[in-house]
């Protein structure tokens, strides 16, 4: 009963712009594609950023000036047309919702990791964002060489796992492809030491997943979930599964899989999974997030600009306090 009440309080409201079934989207045919590369006007010709007017039409995000805004992409590094199309939609989205940075959930580059690959699979698709000063913070996936940590635009500071803070939100980028005891010790120490209101780990392999291809990473779940629970983690982002899935809160923590920024595994979310709150596996997608005090607003948009999931989450500590009689 208490857990049900907690879940209800934690998830304040959910709005969905489309009428998708819970776990599986119908049919494989999305709307007309956006242009493969849609360049905005040069930075020098762009007017100064206006004061934010509040929520954009059709958006559930409050778009406040002092909030923490970021983009979430995963499994993006293909260099193929869908990646560029998703990137173009992201650029359009940013015109109304100017996020400052992005977290990358791994598989940032598929195949060779030569200079051309960095260009074709990262620098070019996201050129507009990079030119505008958006910082990308990458986590490593199972298709990523560890040397990506030396590529400065990934902001990993030479480390496979690292942490950074944005106002009252601390992020923990982990290397789930190689979870050593040393990394776990580091994570425990950093979570314990952090006084940030929001604690958001992100890494490649989801510890809860309804994916038929991979599913939940149980070893990782055994090792990291206790730390998340003990030290007040609120939300966890992962990739690896090539779809979008927002899971029902697991012991109070919301897990979001976003592995569809370029790759897609259609129809891969298990039907009738008891884990799924919302899933989208009919097209590529990305997620934007805005954190305002104790609320986290999110919006997931498909390659073609359809909002496929949105809502607001209450910070776990606040939700639990509210639930305590």
């Amino acid at each position: 009963m208490r857990r049900t009440l907690l879940a209800a309080l934690f998830t304040v409201s959910l709005a969905c712009a489309t009428s998708l079934p819970q776990a599986r989207a119908p049919g494989p045919t999305p709307g007309p594609p956006t242009p493969a590369e849609k360049a905005g006007p040069p930075s020098s010709a762009r007017p100064a950023a206006p004061r934010l007017p509040g929520p954009a039409p059709g958006s559930t995000l409050p778009n406040q000036s002092e909030s923490v805004k970021f983009l979430v992409i995963g499994d993006s590094g293909t260099g193929d047309r869908p990646q560029y199309e998703v990137a173009a939609t992201i650029v359009e989205t940013r015109k109304r919702f100017p996020f400052d940075f992005a977290i990358m959930l791994g598989d940032n580059l598929y195949g060779s990791e030569n200079a051309k690959a960095f260009a074709d699979k990262f620098a070019k698709p996201y050129k507009s964002l990079l030119d505008d000063g958006v910082k990308f913070y990458a986590a490593l996936g199972n298709h990523d060489e560890p040397t990506q940590r030396f590529y400065e635009p990934f902001n990993m500071e030479g480390r496979r796992f690292y942490t950074f803070r944005k106002k009252d939100v601390r992020f923990f980028a982990l290397d789930s492809t190689y979870m050593t005891p040393e990394q776990l010790d580091w994570l425990k120490h950093e979570l314990e030491d952090s006084d940030a209101k929001w604690k958001i780990p992100y890494f490649h392999h989801p510890i809860y997943s309804s994916g038929e291809r991979h599913g939940s990473e149980l070893d990782l779940q055994v090792l990291v979930e206790p730390l998340f629970l003990q030290f007040g983690v609120d939300v966890v982002f992962s990739g690896h599964e090539h779809f979008y899935e927002r899971l029902k809160p697991q012991k109070g923590i919301v897990y979001i899989t976003q592995g569809a920024a370029a790759k897609l595994r259609r129809g891969n979310i298990r039907n009738n999974s008891s884990l799924t709150a919302k899933g989208f596996d009919a097209d590529r997608s990305f997620t934007i997030v805005e954190i305002v005090d104790d609320q986290m607003f999110f919006e997931t948009t498909s390659r073609t600009g359809q909002v496929v999931d949105s809502g607001v989450l209450l910070r776990r500590e606040v939700a639990e306090a509210a639930a305590t009689p």
């Binding site: 195949g111 199972n142 298709h143 060489e145 492809t177 190689y178 979870m179 050593t180 070893d219 055994v222």
Partner: peptide, 19 residues
């Protein structure tokens, strides 16, 4: 091989292997 994924050694197994 560049086109081969890096397999993930299960963390609980990794925990028991020499560092």
């Amino acid at each position: 091989p560049a086109d081969a994924a890096l397999s993930t050694v299960p963390p609980l197994m990794l925990n028991n292997l020499p560092r």
